[in-house]
């Protein structure tokens, strides 16, 4: 049975998805060709927004984790778990697009570049979070353990980023490409900013939708237990 609320939720998702697709069209037809890289730079319009969404997810994960510790509620755990899933999705997307972009511009599929390495570690940490979630029995101890890990992950990302940046930039000149930098043309800049905003919103919607999903599964389980008792 689809309630009015479900329907609203789905409409909102459909609108956001349309915006995402619309932004891709803008990325292909509105933004001008880059003078150095040619057409291939357009992958940036997917790569940079998903990277930002991936890292913003780690901040959201920390927020939901703190909430989880404060309220000890399954609702905040469901939100945190959904955030980790969405974060993992976007880190993988970032890694894939980064790799595809790296081949023509750097001449290699992979390099231990600071950002790539940090993103890779973030993907592993999201996986770790989901594994911990799966390995714990339902209940308050899972809420607490997952919340602690969520906070640890968020606290670790800046240290990892800083250490990897030093590692990769202290001894060799920064060979990585700067995403346009200050020389970016206004059309490109606006398309990019729009893309970031849209993808972050879409990510937020995914988190909401997914956490409702998790809660629903919980309710279903509780209901079947009740059934068992009567």
């Amino acid at each position: 049975m689809i309630t009015a609320e479900d329907r609203r939720e789905l409409y909102l998702g459909a609108i956001l998805l349309t915006l995402v697709v619309g932004h891709w069209l803008a990325a292909f037809y509105y933004a001008p060709v880059d003078e150095h890289q040619g057409e291939v730079y357009r992958i940036m319009f997917l790569h940079v927004p998903s990277a930002i969404t991936a890292f913003a997810s780690s901040a959201a994960l920390a927020v939901f984790s703190v909430l989880g510790l404060k309220r000890r509620s399954e609702a905040s755990l469901a939100l945190a778990k959904a955030t980790a899933e969405v974060g993992l999705l976007f880190t993988v997307l970032t890694l894939a697009t980064g790799s595809i972009w790296g081949r023509p511009t750097w001449g290699t599929w992979w390099t231990w570049d600071a950002r790539l390495t940090t993103t890779f570690l973030l993907a592993l940490l999201y996986c770790g979070y989901l594994l911990l979630y799966a390995a714990m029995p339902t209940g308050p101890s899972r809420i607490r353990a997952c919340a602690v890990l969520g906070i640890l992950i968020f606290a670790d990302v800046p240290i990892i980023y800083k250490s990897v940046t030093w590692w990769r930039t202290l001894h060799q000149p920064p060979s990585m490409l700067r995403a346009g930098g200050s020389t970016m043309e206004p059309e490109i800049l606006w398309t990019l900013v729009l893309g970031i905003v849209i993808l972050c919103l879409y990510g937020a919607w995914l988190i909401r939708f997914r956490s409702r999903n998790i809660r629903l599964a919980d309710t279903l389980e509780a209901a079947s237990f009740d059934q068992l008792q009567t």
């Binding site: 592993l124 940490l125 996986c127 911990l132 390995a135 714990m136 602690v148 640890l152």
Partner: peptide, 22 residues
């Protein structure tokens, strides 16, 4: 954290190593 988790032996290094890279 992993005290009550199943499959602790494999879960532990998967959490510890990425966090220990710095």
């Amino acid at each position: 954290m992993t005290l009550k988790a199943n499959a602790r032996q494999i879960l532990y290094p998967l959490l510890y190593f990425p966090l220990a890279t710095p």
